[in-house]
Amino acid sequence: MTILIVAEHDHHELKSATRSAITAATALGEDIHLLITGHGVDKVAQAAAKVQGVTRVRVADDLAYTHGLPENLAPLLVLIAPDYTTVMAAADSFGKNLLPRVAALLDVAMVSEVTQIVDQNIFVRPIYAGNLNATVQTTDPIKVLTVRATSFPAAPDGGAADIETLPTTGDTGLATWISTEIHAMDRPELSTAHVVVSGGRALGSAERFQEVLSPLAAKLNAALGATRAAVDAGYAPNEWQVGQTGTVVAPDLYIAIGVSGAVQHLAGMKDSRVIVAINHDPDAPIFQWADYGLVADLFEAVKELENSL
């Protein structure tokens, strides 16, 4: 029962979502290998070897792996997958891009966005925007999974794994990276923040979205989130979108401001520990999900809330 986790990192440190995948893997077996791909990854490999639960770090260093292109990484995964019962990654944009390609090349099914591991072959995953949970059993010799990071705590440091260097598979020529634009954030990352302050279309404009929500988010050291309606209206950038088609979050505190509570938004935040809703409409569906609901003018209430913290 050896498990391979494909790590996501920025060439300096592991993404927190990968640490969550490591925690999930401990429910499947004790021999957990972490694959680090990229170019110039010594530092992150050293860091990965210290994560609790990891028994071996396998490093594949190649210029062709720098940007995590699935076209170049899939052949490497296919080469080493037969050593494993399970190949897994966090269900973020990297894992979701790569692992289906690997599964198809291995001719096995994939289980996406696992939220619960029942046993080594049985997994729970959300379907229909999280309105239902499906429990599925795999029958393939190699299981390919992505796991939802918010469902598993991040594995802490505290291990001492071996580091091994792998031969690499080079450039397939099927894709060329051109550029990556990561929007600078002075706030914590949305998917892993402890507090999220989220706004809906009731904010009224991009300027007011910032004016009203930023000071509150700053006081709470919160990430900013948005509904799809707010994003579509141009009030907030796409990567702030919380929901079925955006980021799934499960912070300790989620404050929904001027959010009506569309099904697709609820799918992205309903597992938050404490949900607060502030909305002037007492019938807004969000109140059915909120632990604490406040029917009030959002502009006044947010100002008052900010001042009382």
Partner: peptide
Amino acid sequence: PRLKLLQVAEPPARAPGIKVSSVA
């Protein structure tokens, strides 16, 4: 099919919340 569907269920419901009357 390579996957066997064992069960479909609604996720556990959240405990009902309360309305508060003020920011304080």
